[in-house]
Simulated assay, not measured.
Amino acid sequence: MQKMILLVEDEAAIAEPLQYALKRENWQVLWFTTAIDALNALAQQKFDFIILDVGLPDMDGFELCRKIRQHWQTPLLFLTARNDEIERIIGIEIGADDYCGKPFSPREIISRIKAIWRRMELTAANGQHPDKLTQTQATESHEKIIEFSPWYADLNRYQIKYHGQLLQLTRYEAGLLLFLLKHPEQVFSRIQLMQQVWEHPDHSLERTVDTHIKSLRQKLKLVSDDEPITTHRGLGYSLKR
């Protein structure tokens, strides 16, 4: 089935060449210049990807992203002319899967879209129902359970329980925690964590790791007063066992 892309960008000089490049990939593209039109389109049909400009005439792109995430989990990439590190981090925190700064090449956008889809396909494949697993896959699935007190992680379903409570984590929070769970007591630098969890570590910011660790700690604190993630000043982070 042909992929359907929702493009929300109010500058024709940016949207038109990007739309052309996306269509050359044999993807359908619906282009809108306002947030309200984008929301109406989302309510009427299913999209496989959303490309969203931060600066829209009728609504801030971040606010639109929040509204989208209330109803849809469609993968989303921000286009932004802003170089403020905090705003880029906010974009990821409120539910964006990636961001790309202006100016950009359409080829870079296409590469990022394909990388996100590959990750989603891998996650879906790992989350197959046990009844549908082959014998080899069933054997491998036992190796995808991490269990030591107070943790239980099912890598097949991308689920993590802490003190018996299922955690509601963002993709990057879950990715960070799963990697640390696989290597308890080992110290990893921010760069090492980015290389393991982020699709485009070269384009990400080291401070992004700190932000996600902070939000992860806050969610763990709601379950227990324990502090399982240790900060090693000047070195990075580790998980207690």
Rank of each mutant, 00 (worst) to 15 (best):
M1K: 11
S224V: 05
T231C: 12
Q2G: 06
A174G: 08
L169G: 03
M120Q: 14
T33R: 14
K182P: 02
Q45F: 08
A21I: 12
Y152I: 04
W117T: 08
Q44C: 02
K219S: 01
Q159C: 04
Q159S: 13
V187A: 00
L39P: 00
K144L: 14
H183Y: 14
S105P: 00
D131A: 09
Y152A: 11
L193W: 00
E185R: 07
P150R: 03
N40T: 15
T34G: 03
A43D: 13
E140C: 07
G91V: 05
E63M: 08
F49E: 05
T74P: 00
L79K: 04
D84G: 01
L18N: 05
I50M: 11
Q19M: 13
F62A: 12
Q128G: 14
L176D: 00
P106V: 03
G234Q: 07
F104W: 09
P201F: 05
H163N: 12
D10I: 07
T134I: 09
T139P: 06
T123D: 13
Y152M: 05
F148C: 01
F188G: 00
Q159T: 11
R66I: 08
R217G: 11
S105H: 12
T211R: 14
G91H: 04
I92E: 01
S141Q: 07
R171H: 07
K182A: 10
I146L: 15
L155C: 07
L79S: 10
S224W: 09
H212R: 12
A115F: 01
N126S: 11
T211M: 11
L239Y: 05
G61R: 04
S204M: 11
L22N: 14
E85V: 15
K67N: 10
H129W: 10
G164Y: 12
P17V: 02
L180V: 02
A96H: 05
N83K: 11
V197L: 04
E87N: 15
E25W: 06
W31H: 11
P75I: 02
P57A: 11
S141F: 05
T123A: 15
L56K: 05
K221Y: 12
F179C: 10
L178N: 15
P150A: 01
S189Y: 00
Y152K: 11
L205Q: 15
I36Y: 11
H232V: 09
R24L: 15
H200N: 09
R107F: 12
Y237H: 11
T34I: 08
Y158S: 08
P228L: 08
L176N: 06
Q159Y: 07
P184F: 07
C65K: 09
N83M: 09
G61E: 01
F47R: 03
V209E: 00
D154M: 02
A13E: 13
K182T: 09
P75T: 04
G91M: 07
K132Y: 14
I94S: 06
E227V: 10
L166R: 14
R24P: 01
Q70V: 06
E227K: 13
K23R: 14
K67G: 04
I116Q: 10
P228D: 03
L133T: 01
I51C: 13
L181A: 03
Q137I: 02
E11P: 00
M194Q: 09
